[in-house]
């Protein structure tokens, strides 16, 4: 108990700073991921011919070791937060892209026919029918992505991006288990917390009518 107190008195300020950095990197990557992957997912539903190809490529990128990707960006973007965010963004895309694609693609075709037959434009059909109905699936993808990102963001430290990874890598280099634990525990807690929060958000974002249909409201 004492050791925890001394750890906080010594590293508290730094811990807060690194946690903030960690969240910053993760959310920046996540935000980029949402901004790119959701529209791309919708677009892919409209382009069935290339959808398979793009989803395949995204799947392959996902299998690259994270460290390799981070290292890959050093010559292109140097070191620091920006390459870290870009690399993590690439990772975050796949779950969001896949879920958006599946969510939109699985919207009941009779509803699409109804919306076309009633005179919705393609844009209206997307924003008023497909997206609201796909929201639960898309949100699940975002949530999955966010939880992964919190973990992956520890690697940002490796290329000078900062974050809680700094504690862990320092601890590893200096043989200081307290630093390793001091970094790893907050990462885990953040991941759990975020999962809970986004779970709530996922529910809130699901249209009431859909929740009723599933017997959840």
């Amino acid at each position: 108990m004492d050791s925890i107190r001394t750890f906080f008195s010594e590293y508290g300020a730094l811990l807060a700073e690194k946690t903030w950095e960690h969240l910053y990197i993760s959310f920046a990557a996540l935000a980029l991921g949402v901004i790119v992957a959701v529209p791309l997912g919708i677009l892919l539903v409209r382009l069935p011919k290339i959808a398979g190809l793009v989803m395949g490529i995204a799947g392959i990128v996902q299998t690259f070791p994270s460290l390799a990707i981070l290292a890959f960006f050093i010559p292109l973007l140097g070191i620091g937060k920006v390459p870290a965010i870009v690399a993590l963004f690439l990772y975050s895309m796949l779950p969001i892209l896949r879920n958006t694609y599946i969510g939109v693609k699985n919207v009941d075709p009779t509803l699409l026919e109804a919306s076309r037959g009633m005179g919705m434009t393609t844009f209206q059909r997307t924003t008023r029918v497909e997206l609201p109905l796909a929201v639960p699936v898309i949100m699940a993808g975002i949530r999955m992505s966010a939880v992964y990102l919190i973990g992956w963001a520890t690697l940002a430290s490796f290329i000078g991006g900062g974050g809680l990874g700094d504690f862990i890598f320092d601890g590893l280099n200096l043989f200081r288990p307290d630093l390793i634990i001091g970094g790893a525990v907050p990462v885990t807690l953040l991941a759990i917390l975020l999962d809970l929060l986004l779970g709530k958000l996922e529910k809130a974002a699901t249209p009431i009518g859909i929740r009723l249909e599933r017997g959840e409201a």
Partner: peptide
């Protein structure tokens, strides 16, 4: 236009 499967939008009142 009335389609056979009714096709009401479940997320709308």
């Amino acid at each position: 236009y009335v389609i056979q499967q009714i096709g009401l939008f479940p997320h709308m009142t």
